[in-house]
Design a protein around this nucleic acid. Structure first.
Lengths: 215, 215
DNA sequence: CTCATTTATGAGGTTTTTCTCATTTTCATT
DNA sequence: AATGAAAATGAGAAAAACCTCATAAATGAG
């Protein structure tokens, strides 16, 4: 095993039966390896090595890489949307919700650089995940539209454009500097029809009110 | 070989020596196969089969897939930028240039769905190509900024955001309907700081003036 | 048309990755 | 501690992909 980061799944299963603990080890290792080599280039043995298991052990749990990716991506989606939701409680202003959700997502990527990477790969390979994310995003967009703040019709292309901006940020600056986070949030708002001036103001206020006490 | 589309490289080498013709066959086949299976998943034999050549023939021309991708992507970049440039002659209004270039690019993708796909994969694997595209885009952005039409600072993230919107369009609607092209052009302009209203007007006028007589 | 040169071929050797399963080890219950 | 069940192991068979090279075919200059 190399340097240990997250342990997302391990944490959820300490104390549980061995079967669950080993499965978690595979899931956590898969995140690391998928993120560093990419899903396609990953070999089963890369994952089992990372988890300090024999290659044969993999087949006690999954048929193939795809099955594992599904589990990983769904787990990440649950964790990440859970965290973001927790922060958005009570916010009713559409644009603020969108800006905050975007910023929070990217901030999570700063601390757990591997997660977003793998989640985004998963979105395009695991169909069920795609539709879950779409629904999730759509909600906040509708709120902003009802309030007259967004000039846009919600369709699949729009959702993908937003995801594409997030992906671009991750690709170009995996460290996820504040500058990158801000530019991405503003980009998303602009795409939705917010004027540049308002977008800048909004993002600044979101940073001050909701994201000041963080690394 | 499956159904024949483009023949971009073949066309450029009919009459030339056999070596060039075979190389072109490999390049054209590579486009088809890369586009349909993705670069990573493509096997050498997929390409030689498509070109109706023996697998050994590949190694008379290239060391590996990467070398082939470089040739393919550079060739596509030359062809595509050449076509777009030809249409932009004399246009001095920055936003119009950006909108037209975007629309033209996507229209090319409509007729040759494989090209943009492979070009975009190439951009992230062939470094020389990346910098070429960046320079190319940067020019038009600077024009628009000097004219006071864009509210934006040109950096690498911005360039990648624009590319990301184009990729999103290709991913979601490879047929590249007019609706998709328009929404993408408007998205790019919004990202650059054009107001939604102006973006819509601009794109409409570009469609009328420059893109009316096409399929 | 001839023939030296260039190019194409594909069988098979090599390497890489997958996947199985008989055996060993660990677990957790009594 | 004993014991049966559950899990892990890793050697090696099987499959997939790569790449070489001796031979065959095609080319095109004269």
């Amino acid at each position: 095993m190399s340097e240990t980061t997250h342990q997302l799944f391990r944490e959820q299963t300490t104390g549980k039966k061995k079967r669950e603990r080993t499965r978690s080890a595979l899931l956590d290792s898969a995140i690391s390896v998928f993120a560093s080599k990419g899903f396609e280039a990953t070999r089963i043995i890369d994952i089992t090595n990372h988890a300090e298991l024999a290659n044969g052990t993999f087949y006690n749990y999954y048929q193939d890489k795809d099955e594992l990716l599904r589990d990983v991506a769904v787990g990440l989606a649950v964790e990440i949307t859970g965290r973001i939701n927790a922060e958005m409680d009570g916010l009713s202003h559409g644009p603020t919700r969108v800006a905050l959700a975007t910023a929070r997502l990217l901030r999570i990527a700063r601390h757990e650089p591997e997660w977003l990477n793998v989640l985004l790969e998963g979105i395009f390979i695991v169909p069920e995940l795609q539709s879950a994310i779409v629904q999730y995003l759509r909600q906040d967009l509708e709120i902003g539209i009802e309030q007259g703040h967004f000039t846009v019709t919600v369709n699949l292309l729009l959702i993908n454009q937003i995801l594409a901006l997030i992906r671009a940020a991750l690709l170009l600056d995996p460290e996820m500097s504040d500058a990158t986070v801000r530019q991405t949030c503003e980009g998303v708002l602009r795409l939705l029809g917010t004027t540049p001036r308002r977008a800048t103001k909004l993002v600044t206020s979101v940073f001050e009110r909701h994201l000041s006490g963080e690394t």
